[in-house]
Design a binder for these strands. Structure first.
Lengths: 138, 138
DNA sequence: TTTGTTCTACGAAAGTTTTCGTAGTTAAAG
DNA sequence: CTTTAACTACGAAAACTTTCGTAGAACAAA
């Protein structure tokens, strides 16, 4: 369940989301005002970005009034979680599997080498240090 | 001292760095092999990316042999730190200043309102919670 | 009304990142 | 030698993101 029905927000989109998370439902002008503190792009840039985000489903908006009010459609926590877990995963993902790939990626994997790797895997099993997800085996 | 003489790695560059951090010095083929598990771009794509990263100073390389060996020129820890601190900052940066900006961004700031905001600022000062940087006066 | 201001919509340019095809080099076999 | 396989270099297309100018609608104030 790596949910995320939403395409990962871009850098600028993150900036907008962060403002909205802090301010709550806001107009483009309000968001742009905050953003303009640290960034110098024009008002229509922010507007366009927010329109795109709305289309993508990243933002909700209330357009009953002339001036639309936007709010984040995704929870800060979920993005936080995503960022953190991505980091953890990215920084240390495969453990032992990597050794194998390292070996395979380089030489052209002769039968002998494959055999060698198999033995390596066997020895790992004997250590009870396996970490595979599928341990069906029967 | 927000160090970072290096331009922030892009998404793909991060992928390559992560492989190198885990594998240690490696050839393009090795990196590409690992990457190909989760991504399906061609070998020359990985090659080009790594060449660019080398030019940017993100990677070191040993090209004595025909097959070059690359390694990360930046420490995993420093990037981790950067990511984390960016997250913390982004997720809660300005605290009280934001309220003011919210107010200013919306209405057109009549004299009365400005006065009101000044009073608000004064009350913050009394709390000893000020955080301004410029206090020009004259 | 008419005018001025503030807003949305939207196309398209500019900027950035990613992807790959092609050409040329090197080295190991044949 | 000659051929073949694995590499590097590199230009440029493709894809994506960011930026902005311009047009027109809404609305308040003169």
């Amino acid at each position: 369940m790596t949910n995320s029905k939403f395409s990962k927000p871009t850098e600028s989109e993150m900036g907008i989301l962060q403002v909205l998370w802090e301010l709550g439902p806001s107009t483009v002008r309000e968001v742009h005002y905050v953003l303009s503190e640290t960034k110098d792009s024009g008002y229509t840039t922010t507007l366009k970005l927010m329109q795109i985000m709305y289309e993508k489903g990243l933002l909700n908006r209330n357009d009953e009034a002339k001036t639309h009010v936007y709010s984040s459609a995704i929870k800060k926590e979920s993005v936080q979680k995503q960022v953190v877990s991505k980091m953890i995963n990215g920084l240390f993902k495969g453990s032992s599997a990597k050794l194998v790939m390292h070996a395979l990626g380089n030489h052209h994997a002769s039968k002998e080498e494959i055999q060698e790797i198999k033995e390596y895997l066997d020895s790992m099993e004997n250590d009870g240090n396996v970490k595979k997800k599928s341990d069906s085996k029967k």
